[in-house]
């Protein structure tokens, strides 16, 4: 087991591995392995929050009500775009834990086809012990965000099928 500081020293290795293997299942498994490094729950959260901090900054133009997913407690802003038939997301949240979870979702779902996103298995969130944050009763916007991501994917894939 290691601390978040040890993790930072090793993560270069992991990101290399990430770019080499791009399947959703592989990326998810990488995340599960990565979190297994941390025995202490607060270290896990610290790592998650660090991942959120590395998320590219969301353009202020998208930090508007139009892109806002209302959670009762935390807010999420999500901006999807489509390039060459693949869906990309930028997002942000005012809560660091939610933002860390967004970073994980983006890592798994970014740059994929609408079909891939719609069928994506997100059980890795359960495997790393973060499933509780997906519950709508937590009202942190994450559950609504995943629904929104899948809706975008559905809309984009049906557009693609029509054209």
């Amino acid at each position: 087991m290691c601390s978040p500081k040890d993790w930072n020293a090793q993560k270069g290795f992991y990101f290399e591995k990430l770019t080499a293997a791009h399947e959703i299942s592989t990326v998810s498994q990488d995340i599960v392995d990565e979190f297994a490094f941390f025995e202490d729950w607060l270290d896990r959260y610290e790592h998650l929050i660090d991942l959120g901090r590395e998320l590219p900054i969301l353009d202020d133009a998208f930090r508007t009500n139009e892109y806002r997913i209302r959670g009762c407690q935390a807010q999420v802003w999500l901006h999807p775009s489509r390039i060459n038939g693949l869906v990309y997301f930028t997002a942000d949240s005012d809560a660091m834990i939610t933002k860390g979870l967004i970073a994980l979702l983006i890592r798994v779902l970014d740059g994929r086809t609408g079909d891939e996103i719609m069928n994506a298995d997100l059980s890795f969130l359960d495997a790393i012990g973060m499933k509780e944050h997906l519950s709508p009763t937590r009202k942190n916007g994450l559950d609504a965000m995943i629904k929104q991501i899948k809706l975008y994917a559905l809309a984009l894939s049906s557009q693609a099928n029509q054209s």
Partner: peptide, 20 residues
């Protein structure tokens, strides 16, 4: 910091507080 984050971290230490 967001109250949600503080309350979540405290919860992991067995401390029940309310956020929101």
């Amino acid at each position: 910091s967001h109250p949600y984050d503080v309350a979540t971290l405290l919860d992991r230490l067995g401390i029940a507080v309310r956020s929101g």
